[in-house]
Design a protein around this nucleic acid. Structure first.
Lengths: 343, 343
DNA sequence: GTAAAAACTTTGCGGGCGTAAAAATTTACG
DNA sequence: CGTAAATTTTTACGCCCGCAAAGTTTTTAC
């Protein structure tokens, strides 16, 4: 049926036989109206296609249904994946996700926050750049918008933090590597932007000392998010100069490890734990690519689906309670060891 | 100075000494007011921090400044990269990018279009899923919103298409492979979702025939976007069954090739063009990962920065002219050969 | 210096919806 | 069946800005 064009809520209210304020209430929360009313509205919704003007809604509501999601670098499939899962949870909760990437850039991160401010989001889920973040700008933002931080821990920021237990996972893989061969050296960026990297480094050092081994740090240069390149170029240099302190290398993350694998390949070093292998290489994160590396990468996973679910859950709690929490909750999820061929 | 809080454009107009309609005009397009007026507004903008309410603006403007960007699968760094470049161009042009991913799913693609409809975008840049797309839904959308399609060619859809010249690039790499060794077999998904894949297959076949060789298709199963897994599992099978018709394999894209590399590695086949190598493998796209594969992947690039720039340029043309073009322009950019160690 | 053009001001309307308060209706429950 | 509670209707206002028309001022051009 070529039914009448509905221009606004007034007209829709008319054809559905319900008053406009009640219809408005329905669209704000379908559960807030009587079942019989809901049925009549939904019936009308099926014959006439009408959707409230989102701009008019957002202009007048105290709170929009927008949830900002900010990740530091979207071209990294890890963040793309976690963002996707978060998006789904947000939609599930009846909100509208707005995905922004900081592209590894401080200015962009601040612009993202500015951009979010103009859309007055109900809340924000943010994985900050880390060291490169402008702490003052973030603090300022968190004051005005309920914000849950995830992935990168920056102390005290936001209403809560949800992330990965780097201490536990680093200990786990150090233990494994020491048990199964030569104690590892630690391969990392000299000045990583991500705070997780510092925690992994520190835990590596303390675990090695606990196990009675000398820790060795291999620190390569690089300050952008092209970790594979940084790992490869740094790796080429270290291998060329015969500066490998051990035949076992634990990398700060999988992307660096993939770069190091490429370097080893090009230098003719066979990687693995089998006979005839010159080098063992392990990573951290169980990155989507790690299982397709040559050889497949031994690593320790992040429980990103738990991180995503819990972050959204916490944010919803803050939003729906209507008040900011006094305490700053911090939640860390455990990783699991993935033993593959590389170490 | 703890200056007066500005609540709306009325108040801002007052403190800036300019009338509200003129201020409104300024925010719509700063160039549209006299230089002296612009200076006074911008001066006021520095002491008072005011930004127009974006919802009120969008509600009342004939056209919003929103530009939708839809990609089929954001966890693929190729799309993440091209989306980033497009975003920048869009911002540069004074518009507001809204990035959406279809996550490889038809339903999600339709939902993205629905979601875009509610925000009444000035235009949309869309890379469709391809075969999995709901053509009717896309056509319907394109009728109501100026849309430029990119990457995946679906005939006649949208106001224009911008993409990669698959014929030329496939010919290029076929030529190279034939010239430098055994003629290649073609490794692909049996029923790829992406139309580019079909073009590459057809061009492979015709090029081989032109060069006087028998074409061989190796078609593996899989219908999602986890190309590495599909390539690896398919590759393992083919290698196990000794079904490789040539020692040279041209893959339909780099991600499949990376999967095939992993399979070859695990089967103990040395890949490369040097002495002692059992297999040559080449890809297509010059994917961000391809240079870090073991060995680095020989491939042919897509000129994604040209594709991004041109897409935005065309869309701006349509938007700013205010009328939809009659002809359906189709633009294809050339790729370049990247000779690395894998073939 | 003058006329025309351009830019600005004033005034006023309209968009589509949230929300509040009082009145009317429906439902629940004994 | 009657009453209280829950829900809906009616009425009215407000949000913040785009836009248009008519009148005024400033700039440009000759």
């Amino acid at each position: 049926m070529a039914s009448r064009k509905i221009r606004n809520m007034e007209e829709f209210a008319e054809v559905s036989g319900i008053s406009r304020p009640t219809v408005s209430k329905y669209f704000n929360d379908p559960e807030s109206v009587r079942k019989s009313t809901r049925a009549r509205i939904e019936e009308a919704l099926e014959t006439y296609d009408y959707r409230p003007n989102i701009y008019a809604m957002n202009q007048n509501r105290r709170l929009t249904k927008n949830i900002g999601i900010v990740v530091p670098y979207l071209a990294d499939p890890f963040f793309a994946e976690i963002a996707r899962v978060i998006e789904n949870h947000v939609i599930e909760a009846g909100y509208r996700p707005i995905l922004l990437s900081s592209h590894g850039d401080t200015t962009q991160e601040i612009e993202n926050l500015d951009s979010l401010r103009t859309i007055r989001p109900a809340g924000v889920l943010m994985a900050p750049l880390g060291r490169a973040s402008d702490r003052t700008a973030l603090e300022d933002f968190c004051k005005s918008v309920p914000t849950i931080m995830f992935d990168s821990y920056i102390s005290g920021l936001g209403d809560a933090f949800v992330g990965h237990d780097n201490e536990l996972s680093t200990e786990l893989i150090c233990d494994y590597l020491c048990r199964s061969g030569e104690p590892p050296a630690f391969f990392e960026m000299r000045t990583p932007t991500n705070p997780n990297a510092y925690r992994r480094r520190n835990t590596y050092v303390s675990t090695m000392e606990k196990l009675g081994h000398d820790p060795h740090l291999i620190q390569v240069e690089g300050d952008d998010w092209e970790f594979e390149r940084i790992g490869m170029e740094g790796g080429m240099k270290v291998i060329s100069e015969h500066n490998l302190p051990s035949n076992t290398i634990l990398c700060s993350n999988d992307r660096l490890a993939i770069g190091l694998l490429a370097a080893a390949y090009q230098k003719g070093l066979r990687v693995g734990h089998g006979a005839g292998c010159a080098l063992r290489i392990a990573g951290h994160d169980n990155h989507p690519w790690s299982q397709f590396a040559c050889p497949p990468l031994t690593t320790v996973s992040q429980d990103y689906s738990a991180i995503a679910a819990r972050s959204v859950e916490l944010l919803m709690g803050v939003i729906e309670s209507g008040e900011r929490p006094e305490s700053h909750e911090e939640i860390f999820f455990e990783g699991k060891l993935f033993m593959r061929e590389s170490a």
